[in-house]
């Protein structure tokens, strides 16, 4: 069905207001869009790794989730949800459950790229019929902006503080989407809340309704940790995509497909400039660092173009 916002408003919202994420947080936008892709008649079992999303949507005695929700620890959301999926399959076999239930795990970048990685890798390899969604805000935000393996090079965080010793985080960002593609699972995609959210919605739909394991890596800006003004969220995402810092692509049964190719690839500084976490790079002595970031973005982009047969 063609993507149409008006038609989509008829679907019931599956996460409510009254949660305690910061004003302007990207994560709830990602979550509500992913859940919107569920068929209204299907039930969902959702588990979230500890992090901003988990602690802010489920403060006793309140829950913002309308589907079944399991609190998970920081490191095992994928294991928790895959276990629930296995139990469901066993019950379904003996006719003890009715209807269709979908299984979704959400994790932050810390809970996905770092501490939850082995649980994720295992769940995907075992072939559970579930979707793992990483809402990537590029640091451990919930505990006060500590660097993760997803934090981009030279970003200022509280454990990679830009100053006279180092100019922010000294390592490049891990490429988790590629690592998940290397699991050779049925569906892997990289996406973001872009424009009218078509890309994110349609990828969530594919991830949910492709049998077997699926992984979505979704850029989810954090105005608090990235230090930009809250109204700019959609513009920040647009710049991430137009500079090729965060390309939109999917890997279906091992086949790479590029979903968006900027008409004019913007210089990476356009994306870095509005964000306080990169402010220290805009001095005379740090010019070389900006070049270094640009080179790495270009290298990864060109490699992706090759994989997608677009080079």
């Amino acid at each position: 069905m063609a993507y149409n916002l008006k038609t989509l408003t008829e679907k019931e919202e599956r996460i409510t207001g009254g949660h305690r994420m910061c004003a302007g947080c990207g994560a709830p936008i990602v979550v509500r869009t992913v859940l919107r892709a569920l068929k209204p008649e299907d039930h969902a079992v959702i588990g979230v790794a500890t992090g901003c999303l988990e602690v802010s949507t489920c403060l006793y005695p309140y829950t913002a989730w309308k589907d079944s929700f399991i609190h998970s620890a920081f490191e095992n959301a994928a294991a928790t949800v895959s276990g629930a999926e296995a139990a469901y399959r066993a019950l379904a076999k003996v006719g003890k459950v009715k209807g269709t239930t979908k299984f979704i795990a959400f994790g932050g970048d810390g809970g996905t790229y770092d501490i939850g990685f082995q649980a994720l890798s295992g769940a995907m390899e075992r072939g559970h019929d579930m979707v793992y969604v990483c809402y990537d805000n590029e640091a451990y935000m919930n505990t006060g902006i500590q660097r993760s393996s997803s934090t981009p090079k030279y970003a200022d965080t509280t454990t990679s503080p830009a100053g006279s010793e180092i100019p922010g985080k000294v390592q490049f960002k891990k490429d988790l989407t590629m690592i998940m593609a290397a699991h050779n699972i049925p569906y892997v995609a990289q996406t973001a809340p872009f424009r009218n959210l078509k890309d994110l919605y349609e990828k969530a739909e594919k991830a949910l309704y492709t049998p077997g394991p699926a992984f979505l890596n979704v850029l989810a800006p954090c105005p608090r940790g990235w230090r930009y003004n809250t109204p700019q969220l959609m513009e920040i995402v647009r710049l991430a995509i137009e500079t090729c810092v965060w390309p939109l692509y999917e890997v279906i049964e091992g086949k790479f497909i590029l979903n968006y190719k900027p008409k004019n690839k913007l210089p990476v500084v356009e994306y870095l400039k509005p964000q306080g976490r990169f402010r220290h790079l805009f001095t005379k002595e740090n010019e070389g660092l900006l070049d270094e970031i640009q080179k790495e973005v270009d290298r990864r982009w060109n490699r992706l173009l090759e994989l997608c047969g677009e080079a």
Binding site: I15, T16, G17, G18, H19, R20, A23, T57, C58, L59, Y60, P61, Y62, T63, A64, W65, K66, D67, S68, F69
Partner: peptide
């Protein structure tokens, strides 16, 4: 610590954060 009113976070008002 089960919460059986799915979606009851709606009852919590965040409008005074503005």
């Amino acid at each position: 610590g089960h919460i059986i009113d799915a979606g009851n976070a709606e009852d919590f008002k965040t409008g005074d954060w503005r």
